[in-house]
Structure formats: structure tokens, C-alpha cells
Design a protein around this nucleic acid. Structure first.
Length: 637
RNA sequence: GCCGAUGUAGCUCAGCCGGCAGAGCAACUGAUUCGUAAUCAGUAGGUCGCCAGUUCGAUUCUGGCCAUCGGCUCCA
């Protein structure tokens, strides 16, 4: 019997029923098989060996496509598991998916794996690849699968099968050589298809991602269609390491984390503080432009107030407490309480609303030791926090204005971001009805602003749902910075009210929001984003004066005074060193402009700027250089 | 908090099987006065993360703690 197979070019090929997808492709276009790892059959991705029994629409999955790489990496993870079990007898497998840029596989084994074991594993993997075992798919009855994996002492696989929904009767397994894995597939045709892979790291990982479960050993690796792509990726990793904000923080003398002072506590050095000051100064002005008022609350507030807000019940584990005069105080992990007390300090009219309280508020949160990470995850940080108290009718406009503000701010720094809507978590306060109202308000505002977003189920704050803006750093990791949280509950708990046009008391709604998020985290992401080479308006040092010889010092000193007087952040490098050395030092400090001063400049009342990118601007009158820097600052360049 | 690795001069890193601790850069001193990515010579600098233990003797071996790194869980 013949069947018809339709290909992407609309060409229809007739083949015998029972032929494989690979055979069908070969009869259509032989070259298409060269880089094929799987096939999209009527929209479903399956093995090339899949047998065709009726008419079908087929698309080839190329190894270099996202789906193709996914399949390749997933197959490499099988080969790795295969190798690990050969090298380490008794190692049990659990799960081994492909992930962004690679794959991992989780094992249980009595002895810890180390990176020293990688060579043995990789050697074994190469043997398996050389043997070119086909990946054979078999579909077997659920109970047979349980028996098979029980015999092979693969407890985790047995657990996975047992946890499948009851209506599933058939499961698929994949074999390559003598290795068998429970797996949905699809896989590459055979192990020999693998051309380039590398094991990268080992780490602990909880079974099924639950910290109550046993910790397994995870091996991370990556794989590509060819050696060149792998090398390029490894080079990229090296480059990313060079822009690590912790490394740059040290090299550019921006900040330190000191063991004696405490983990997760940032000590800002002069240059780091200058950068922070510039950002904060910019932010304050932007807030004032948008109708915010600056406020400030205390670091510690009595514990009863934290009980009233619900923080004591829901957030206690993350809080620090201190005892003063037999009174317990909570060190603030959030800024909202003081802002509510400001609101409550007098009777409010609907004419007063919305009220927008802005505070660069420093908070303390007790984060677990293992999560601390440079500036990105710390225990004390400052939020560019604001609380907006408004009527329910004003909610939409306010949320949309904040989303615009975020967009504007991200544009200034050149960040791309993604938006998520996080809904009600397991532990929450307030009524379901209010949660629904709050969630709808956020959702509607996003839709009115035509912002694409994904729903992040159950990830809201305990007092309300939130919109999270996640921006991407140099390593493609996503960091939550901006967030908008809609809260009906705290105004209720604090009995906030305003007098409406009807003369009656009404309950205001509160929006919690940050734009940059935590200044520390934002700076960390910013450092990596610019690789430490800050634009002129942000650079802690905008220019450095380099004298050619000692005789140029008096003139250079006068230039320094002029520049400093003009508000330009300038450094001196008048030491007795060769110009090449001074340029090299300035270059490594990533200072935007090096101002060379020699005989020519002295006689022309000029400076000779050399830009960070190496461009030599020749001799420029001092005043002209001042104007140049000022213009760049105004344009945020 | 959990798994694993690491902690040596200001920084980057050597240091074998337990026997008085090393380099480069930086710092300091001197010479040199030089035009776009490292001038030369010399000097100084260490509680080998902290606390115990084993040992005649511990940077080295063992244990505990602290911190950092890679992850997991959690989060701005």
C-alpha cells in the first residue's frame, strides 16, 4: 500500500506504508538527511526511525535548530548516563533533560563525583559514540517497565513510572547498546551522530527539586552539532567570566564583601559609591518629575506593627530582630509600614489621591548562606521603593504609568526585559475576592499597555499579586528588578481610609513598586551589562589626565582644576612613568577618556583626548572637551 | 539550609610523600624625563581563613567553624 507524505516545500512523495520517516525524507531530498536528527510528523516531534503507516505531513528537524539541539543534547545526556554507569558501577539514574545551552543528568552514587572524574566519563562517552549504537525506541506495558527497572535497581525510574497518571498503560524506553532509559524521546538515530560535547560541572540537586528529598549528584554538560560551535560556546563562557561583576568590582575598585564584616553585606568603595550616587540622583529626579514625594522611615519598628501587617507571621524567617529596652523591634525587610503610617497621619480626601510615597529604603533580609552572590543576592540592600495609595478607579492609570516608567528606565540603560504576572501563592493573607480584583487590575493594565507577559502561577507576594520585570544579564540569566504589586490587604489591616465625594469613608488600594529593584542588584547587572566600561554619564571617573613628562605637571594641574570646577569627574596620573604605561593603566580601569598632556597641549591650552576604544581625538581646547562631556551626560551616553 | 570544591603577600597564583614559605603584578626607594596598552635596578611585605586534634615537628594529615565558588531549594 502506498501513502502520501507532504514536505515543507509542498512536494508530495509517495512511499510504501511501513517505511520510516528517514526513508521518506531520503526519497524527497537526500541532502536533507545530512543534518537531520528527528522529524516533525503531523506537528509532533518524533524519531527519524518512526514508521509511517498513513498519509503524513513531515518537516525535518535540523541539528542546528533549537529543537534539533535540544534532541542532540538530550541524547548526549543519555550517553553520559550510559558512560557513568559503566565507569561507576551501581550509580542510579534519575532524570537527564536538555536545558538552555546544554544538558544535565542526576545520579545517586555512594561516592561524590568530582571534575577529576570527567576525563574517565568523557573517554567512555567517546567509546560509546564510536561504537555508534542506534537509539532504539520500544513501547512496553507499564507493569513490564516497572519490572524491568526494578530488576535493574533503578529506583528513581520505578518511582517515575508509578507516579504517571493511572490511564497511561504504555511507556517508551530507549536503548543504546546495553543502556536502557525510561524516556519519552525523541532521540538522534545513533550515538555516532554526536560530534562535539563537554562535561562542565558537578553540583548537588534535590530529587524532583524538593528540598525534603534526597540530594542527588548532577553533572552538567553541553553539546553542539560541531566542534567549532562548541569552541565558540566555551569561548563565550570565558568572556562572560571576564565581565563577572565580582571580578570587575575588585579590579575597578567599586566594592567589597568582607568576611569580618559579614556575608552578604556590601561595602561600597569611593568609585562604587559614585556610581551608586549617580544612579540614585537620576532616580530621585525622575520620581519628582512623575509626582512622587520623597519620604523616609526608620530601620527598626516595633514587633507589634510587623504582627499587624502579617510580616511576623509570613516573613519572620527572613527578618532580623533586635531587643531594645525590653522591647522587640523588627529590622525592616520592606518599606511599606512607615509609608502606611504617613498615610494614616491625617484624614485623607479623595482629592488627595493618588499619593505616591518614594523612599530609597534600605532593608535587611536574612537570606540563606548558600544563595548569597556578589551584589546580586545580599542581606542588606536599598530598594527604589514607592507605595501608591489610590482609589480603585485610579488603579489602572497608576499601574500603566509605572509600567511606562519601568520601560523608560530600562531604555536609559539599554536593558531588555521580560514580563511575568505572578498570582496567589500557597501562603497568603486577604480574601480570594480581593486577590481576584488585584490580579485583574494588573492584567488589564498590562493588556491596555499592550505588554506581552507570561503567567507565573503561585509566585505572588503573600499580600498580593505582582507584575515582575525580569531583565537579562550577560550570562542570559534573568534577574527580577522592577516589580509592581497590587495590595488590597494591607490597607485593610491598617484600616486606611479616605473620604469620598459622597462624604463616606472608603478604602484605598495600595501599589508597592520598585523600578530598578534593589540598587545593589541593579548595579551588579549593570556592571556585567557594560562589562565595567560605563558610559560617560555613569562612569565614576570620566577622564584621567596623563602627563608626558614632569614638566607638564603645572599645566596639567590647572586643567584638573578647570575640569573639576566644571563638575567633571577627573583623575590625575602625574607619576614619573612612560606614557604607554599610563595609558595601559587607564585602559584597564576602563576610563572613558585619557587626556594626554605634552608640549603641544601646553602651548595650545588644550588636551589630547584618547577615547577608551583607542580613538585619538587629537588636540582639543579644554573648554571644548568640557562641553563634549557635558553633552554626553545630558544625553545619557 | 543542602551537595561538592576552594581559602597561601594588596591582586593573580605556584608550593611533591609532614622538616624554617615562592613568583609575577601592585607598593616603597633610586635612576630615567620619555607622545598613545607594561623603562631599569633595588627594598619591604605572610598568624598559609579561624579553632581544636594527631605528631618530636602541621601551610601540608584529621575534625569543627567561618567565608568564597559551582549548583539545588528560596528570593529584590
Amino acid at each position: 500500500m502506498k501513502i502520501k507524505v507532504t514536505f515543507p516545500d509542498k512536494k508530495i512523495v509517495e512511499i510504501n506504508s511501513g517505511a520510516s520517516a528517514a526513508e521518506a525524507i531520503a526519497s524527497w531530498n537526500k541532502d536533507a538527511l545530512t543534518n537531520a536528527v528527528a522529524v516533525k510528523l503531523n506537528g509532533e516531534i518524533v524519531d527519524l526511525s518512526r514508521v509511517l503507516k498513513k498519509d503524513a505531513v513531515i518537516d525535518v528537524i535540523d541539528v542546528n535548530s533549537d529543537a534539533g539541539l535540544d534532541i542532540l543534547r538530550h541524547s548526549i545526556s543519555h550517553v553520559m548516563a550510559h558512560a557513568v554507569q559503566e565507569v561507576f558501577k551501581g550509580a542510579k539514574v534519575s532524570i537527564g533533560p536538555s536545558i538552555q545551552d546544554g544538558f544535565y543528568y542526576d545520579f545517586e552514587y555512594e561516592k561524590p563525583f568530582t571534575t577529576d572524574d570527567f576525563e574517565k566519563i568523557e573517554t567512555k562517552m567517546r567509546e560509546i559514540i564510536k561504537a555508534d549504537y542506534p537509539f532504539v525506541r520500544e513501547e512496553i506495558e507499564r507493569q513490564k517497565a516497572v519490572k524491568l527497572f526494578t530488576e535493574r535497581k533503578e529506583d528513581y525510574k520505578v518511582e517515575l513510572i508509578n507516579d504517571l497518571p493511572p490511564d497511561i498503560e504504555i511507556v517508551s524506553i530507549y536503548k543504546d547498546g546495553n543502556y536502557i532509559d525510561l524516556c519519552r524521546g525523541p532521540h538522534i538515530p545513533s550515538t555516532g551522530v554526536i560530534k562535539a560535547f563537554k562535561l562542565l560541572s558537578v553540583a548537588g540537586a534535590y530529587w524532583r527539586g524538593d528540598e525534603k528529598n534526597k540530594m542527588l549528584q548532577r553533572i552538567y554538560g553541553t553539546g553542539f552539532a560541531d566542534e567549532e560551535s562548541l569552541t565558540n560556546y566555551l569561548t563565550l563562557l570565558e568572556e562572560a567570566k571576564k565581565r563577572d561583576h565580582r571580578k570587575l568590582g575588585k579590579e575597578l575598585d567599586l566594592f567589597q564583601v568582607n568576611e569580618e564584616a559579614g556575608a552578604g553585606l556590601i561595602i561600597f568603595h569611593p568609585k562604587g559609591m559614585m556610581l551608586r550616587y549617580i544612579i540614585e540622583d537620576w532616580e530621585r529626579k525622575e520620581h519628582l518629575k512623575r509626582g512622587y514625594e520623597m519620604v523616609m522611615g526608620p530601620q527598626i519598628l516595633k514587633v507589634d506593627l510587623w504582627k499587624k501587617s502579617g510580616h511576623f507571621e509570613h516573613y519572620r524567617d527572613n527578618m532580623y530582630f533586635t531587643e531594645v529596652d525590653e522591647q522587640t523591634y523588627g529590622i525592616k525587610p520592606m518599606n511599606c509600614l512607615s509609608h502606611m503610617l504617613i498615610y494614616k497621619s491625617k484624614i485623607r480626601s479623595y482629592r488627595d489621591l493618588p499619593l505616591r510615597y518614594f523612599e530609597l529604603g534600605t532593608v535587611h533580609r536574612h537570606e540563606k548562606t548558600g544563595v548569597l552572590h556578589g551584589l546580586l543576592r545580599v542581606r542588606q540592600f536599598t530598594q527604589d521603593d514607592a507605595h501608591i495609595l489610590c482609589t480603585p478607579e485610579q488603579l489602572n492609570t497608576e499601574i500603566r504609568a509605572i509600567a511606562d516608567f519601568v520601560n523608560y528606565a530600562m531604555g536609559i540603560f539599554g536593558f531588555e526585559y521580560e514580563v511575568e504576572l505572578s498570582t496567589k501563592p500557597d501562603h497568603y493573607i486577604g480574601t480570594d475576592q480581593d486577590w481576584q480584583l488585584a490580579t485583574d487590575a494588573l492584567k488589564n493594565a498590562l493588556e491596555d499597555n499592550k505588554i506581552n507577559y507570561v503567567i507565573n502561577e503561585g509566585d505572588g507576594a503573600f499580600y498580593g499579586p505582582k507584575i515582575d520585570f525580569k531583565l537579562k544579564d550577560a550570562l542570559k540569566r534573568k534577574w527580577q528588578c522592577a516589580t509592581i504589586q497590587c495590595d488590597f490587604t494591607l490597607p485593610e489591616r491598617f484600616d486606611l481610609s479616605y473620604i469620598g465625594a459622597d462624604g463616606e469613608k472608603h478604602r484605598p488600594v495600595m501599589l508597592h513598586r520598585v523600578i530598578l529593584g534593589a540598587i545593589e542588584r541593579f548595579m551588579g547587572v549593570l556592571i556585567e551589562h557594560y562589562a565595567g566600561a560605563f558610559p560617560v554619564w555613569l562612569a565614576p571617573t570620566q577622564c584621567i589626565l596623563l602627563t608626558v613628562t614632569d614638566k607638564h605637571i603645572p599645566y596639567a594641574q590647572s586643567v584638573y582644576e578647570k575640569l573639576t570646577e566644571a563638575g567633571i569627574r577627573c583623575e590625575k596620573f602625574f607619576e614619573n612613568e612612560k606614557l604607554g604605561y599610563k595609558i595601559r593603566q587607564a585602559q584597564m580601569q576602563k576610563i572613558p577618556y585619557m587626556l594626554v598632556i605634552g608640549d603641544k597641549e601646553v602651548s595650545a591650552a588644550a588636551v589630547a583626548p584618547r577615547a577608551r576604544d583607542g580613538a585619538n581625538l587629537g588636540s582639543v581646547p579644554v573648554q571644548e572637551f568640557i562641553e563634549l562631556v557635558k553633552e554626553m551626560c545630558e544625553k545619557r551616553k
